[in-house]
Design a protein around this nucleic acid. Sequence first.
DNA 1: TATGACATCGTTTTT
DNA 2: CGATGTCATA
Length: 757
Amino acid sequence: MAYGDGPLLVLAGAGSGKTRMLTHRIAHLIATRRAWPSQILAVTFTNKAAREMRERVESLLDSRDQRVWVATFHSTCVRILRREITQLGYQTSFAIYDQSDSLALVKRVLRSMNIDEKGWPPRSVRSEIDRFKSRGMLPNEVIADGSLHDEQIGQIYRQYQTELRRANALDFGDLILLTVRLFENHPGVLETYRRRWQHILVDEYQDTNPVQYRLLRLLTGDSQNLCVVGDEDQSIYRFREADIRNILDFEKDFPGAKVVRLERNYRSTQAILDAATAVVSNNTERKGKTLYTDREGGEPIRFYEAADERAEAAFVVSELLKSVDAGASLGDSAIFYRTHAQSRPFEEELLKYNVSYVVVGGTRFYDRAEVKDALAYLRVLRNPDDTESLMRIINRPARGIGRTTVERLLMLSEEDGTSLHRAVERARDERLLSGAAAKRVPAFLAVLDRLRDQSAYDDSVATLLAAILEQTGYLRALQQDTSVEAEARLENLQELLSAAEEFERANRAAASQRDASQRDATQSDAAAGPRAEGDPVGELDLDEGPQNLIDLFLEQVTLFAAVDNLTEDDDRLPLMTAHVAKGLEFPTVFLVGVEEGLVPHFASQSDPAALEEERRLCYVGMTRAMDRLYITHATMRRMHGSVRYNPPSRFLAEIPAEFGVGRPRPGRSESFDSPRSSGAGPGEPRVDYSDSQLPADESPGAGTSGATGTRVEHPVFGAGTIVEVSGAGAGTKLRIRFDRAGMKTIVLRYAQLRMLP
DNA sequence: TATGACATCGTTTTT
DNA sequence: CGATGTCATA
C-alpha cells in the first residue's frame, strides 16, 4: 500500500478488502509524514461506511485522534456550508429538506404557477430537478439549452429554488451543488479548504455523480493527491446520476494516475464468485478483472421456483429455519429483494413463525408523520422561515387554523415575497385576520415564541422536544385518542426522545474527547505521537465554530440512512433491497424475486445501459454471500393489485449450470412472453433443468388415486394428513390437515412434500 | 373545519 | 394493493 502522492485509482473487486486498503493508506500517509491527520479527507456515501472507516483508522493509528476527516459527501458539505453559506446569501441556520419536504414544496410551486399536476407529476418534476442538480446544472442552464420540456422544467426549477431560498432551506442536491458554487465563486474560500485537505480519498467512486466529481476536482487542485477506490461492476446509482464514466475514465482525467487492482476476494466461495462473475461479464461497460478466491468449491447455488410470492416466502423461511435448527443465528442470513414492496410476504411468513427480523429501509423511522411533526417544530424554532415545516405544524395538533386561513396567509407571503412566518407575523401585527383565526394565529405564535425562549437558555434537544410535545398540546391530543395507532405514535415519539438523549450523550463524549486531544497536542510532544505536534488543524477546524446542537441533531436525522442503523451483533434477520445491501456481507443470502420485471426491472428493460446496471445489481446481490446463496423467483406475483406472470430473470441463464441446483422446470418460460427468452443464446442451453423440486419417486399422490390418508411432511407446515386430492398432473391440488398449522390447500407441483412412513 | 367515503393512479433503487 | 387526493357531508 505504499503508494505515495499523486492520483491513484484502486479497482477493488467485491470482497477484496477495499476498506482495509483505504484505512491502511490513511495510516501510511500519516506514518510516513506525507500528511497530518487533519490534512486527510476521506469521503464515503453512507454514514455507516464512514463510521466503520473512522473506527478502523483509529485502531490502526492506535489513537483516538479524530482529526482525519471521514464523512459522507453530504455531511462534509453541510459542515462546510454551516461555516460559509452566508457568502451565498443564506443564513447559517438553514434547514435541510429531505425528499418528502422537497416533494411538498414542488407541489406548492406547481400550484402557485398554475401548472396542472396531471401533465407535470410532482414526483417526476422533483426527481428531474434533483437530477439536474446532480449534473451541476442551474435553472438558467436548463432553460437555455433544452427542449421545450426542459425549458418548462427549468422554469419550475427556478421557482422551486426561489422558494427554497425564501425558506432558508437546502435540499440534498443543494448541499453538494452549493458547495461547488461556493468554491467556484469564492476562490479564497476554496484555497482555505485546499490547504486544509492535502490528501483526498474517495470510497465507492463508481457511484459519484458529475457534481460530486466537480467537487473532488476543485478540492484536489494541483496537488492531484486523489485516491479513489471503486468497482465499476458495483455501480448501481445511475438513477441519481452516478456516472460510471468517472471511474472508467479516471486515468484519462488524471494523467499519470497509478492503478492498482485488488482481485483477491476474501469473502465468497469459488462457486458464488464464479457464478457472479459469469453474470457481470456480460456487461460491456467495464474494465474487466479476474477475481479469485482461496475458498475452492463450496456449496452450489440453490435455485428455487415458487408458485407465487407467498410460496417464495414460505420456501425462504423454511430454509432459514432449517439453518437455525442447525445452529446458525438469524443475523447470519439476509433476504435481498429489488423493491421494498416485496418485503411484505416475507414479513408475514416470519411473523407466523415468530422469527425476529428487521426491515432495513422502506419507511424510515424519521419519516413517520408524528416524528416529522415533532422535528418540524424543532426546525421552525431554529429557522422560522422554513415554510414547509411551518405549514406542517400550524394546525397540528388541530388548533382551528384551517385550510382557508393558511391559504390566505400563504397568499400574503407570496404578495410580499416573504416566508410564511413573516406573513403570519404581519397578519398578527396588522390585524389582518378576522373571526376565530384572529385569536388563534397569535396564540400559535405565542407558543412558538415561548418555546424559542426556552431553547435559548436550555440547549438540551431532548428537553426541548419534550417541551414542544407538552406545550403544543401534541401529547395531550394523542393521549386522548384511544386507538392503537395513537398508541404506536406515542411510542414513536418516546423513541425520538430517546434518540435525542442518545445524540446528546454521544455529542458530549465526542466534544470532551476533542478537548482532551487538544490538550495532548499542546502539553506533550513525544507522548502524543507524530500526529499532534505541528498539526496545522487550528487553521480550519470543522468540529469547532458555531455548531448549534439542534441543527446538528436535525442534520443527523435528515441525512440518516436506513443502513446506518444496522449492526453486526443484531440477531435479527435483515430484509433489504440489493441497493441497501451493497457493502455488506452475510454467510447466507437469499436473493429473491429474480424475475423479468423485477431484475431487470420493467423500467430498465428498454435501455441497454440501464440493463447493464440491473445486471450489476444482481452481481452486487450475489457477491454479498459468503458461504451459501439462494436465488428464487415466483411464477405468479401480485403487484399493485393485479397478477403478473414473470419469467425467470434472463440473468439466471447467464449462470453456468454447474454452479447451481434446483433450476426452474422446463416449459415454463416458453409459455410466457419474455423479452429475451432465458435460453443462453447461441450454443447449448446453459440451464440445467434436471434437478426439479420434487423427485418423482417421492411425490405423494402422483399417479395414485389413493393418496388420501397419506401422511406427508411439508417444509413449512410440518407433518400432516392428505384429506382430499383434486385435479391431475401439474395442477393437482391437495387438501392437507396439518398437525400444527391446520387445514391448507397445497398445489402439489410447488410444494416440497415428503412422504412420511 | 374535520371526517369519511370514494376515486384514481402509478407502479425502483437513495444521500 | 395501498397511498394519495377529492368531494360531500355534519
